[in-house]
């Protein structure tokens, strides 16, 4: 589903290279964890994948279902099924969460040549998905992310993910700022979306989240490259021994 080949990417403004020859393959149905110390390029990878214009790809390619997506803008990639759950979800004052969801869902449908959802159908879907994530209807009437607690913000991200039904989900540090109860709710939400035709890339600093979203593969990112790959036991090794050994071997 996702194939990243010898990817090099830099910050457009000052030319600093962050991703330096990264290779990664994620198959449909797979949950891949990307781990690494601070500054290894984890968040940059999520932005480059989703098409943020502050970053430039200088070499290599990103294939999504066998096709390069480098020429597509962020909205096109989203409409094709790529979803990024943000580490720091952004506040949109004056725009009710419900309204935002409706615009996003219908814009994606429009791009794919589908009819707009009818209001009753939209409401039904939102209510169902919100209940699963223990989101109160009152929260849906508030402006998106404005005054939301850390847990509410992350649940709102997963709610959007559930409603937009993406094929490739990228979760950027979804566990940051969550207490254990909120973490479980969010993890349950993600697990409910696991399916044979959907891939999930979990970006995290800590092993903790991976106790709840159990990955099929684990990749260690360091200085913009994948320096080691393995199965879920690799995450436990990292938890026990830290990054030092692997980084030492790579350096």
């Amino acid at each position: 589903m996702l194939e990243i080949k010898n990817l090099h990417a830099r910050i457009a403004e000052d030319g600093t290279e962050i991703i330096r020859g990264l290779n990664l393959t994620v198959k449909a149905g797979e949950v891949a964890a990307i781990m690494g110390p601070n500054g290894s390029g984890k968040s940059t990878l999520s932005y480059v994948l989703s098409g943020r214009e502050d970053y430039e790809v200088t070499e290599g390619d990103i294939l999504y279902n066998g096709e390069s997506i480098l020429e597509l803008d962020a909205a096109e990639r989203a409409a094709k099924g790529l979803f990024l759950a943000f580490q720091y979800p952004v506040e949109i004052p004056g725009v009710a969460t419900m309204q935002f969801l409706k615009v996003a869902m219908n814009e994606q449908r429009k791009y794919r040549g589908e009819d707009e959802l009818s209001t009753p159908e939209f409401m039904r879907r939102v209510k169902e998905a919100a209940a699963e994530l223990k989101i109160a209807p009152e929260m849906l009437r508030r402006p998106l992310n404005v005054g939301f607690s850390g847990g509410e913000k992350k649940r709102a991200e997963i709610l959007q993910m559930a409603l937009l039904e993406p094929k490739l989900c990228v979760l950027d540090e979804t566990d940051s700022g969550l207490d254990i109860d909120a973490l479980k709710v969010v993890a349950d939400g993600v697990n409910a979306l696991r399916s044979p035709d959907r891939a999930v890339v979990v970006i995290t600093h800590y092993q903790r989240l991976l106790d709840y979203i159990v990955p099929d593969t684990v990749h260690v990112l360091y200085r913009g490259q994948v320096v080691k790959s393995g199965d879920k036991t690799l995450a436990h090794e990292l938890e026990a021994n830290g990054y030092a050994d692997i980084i030492g071997a790579a350096a």
């Binding site: 989703s50 943020r52 962020a74 909205a75 989203a78 409409a79 949109i92 814009e107």
Partner: peptide
């Protein structure tokens, strides 16, 4: 804000 909306598929 703009990138967030774009990422949700809103042109």
């Amino acid at each position: 804000q703009l990138f967030y909306c774009l990422q949700r598929g809103i042109p």
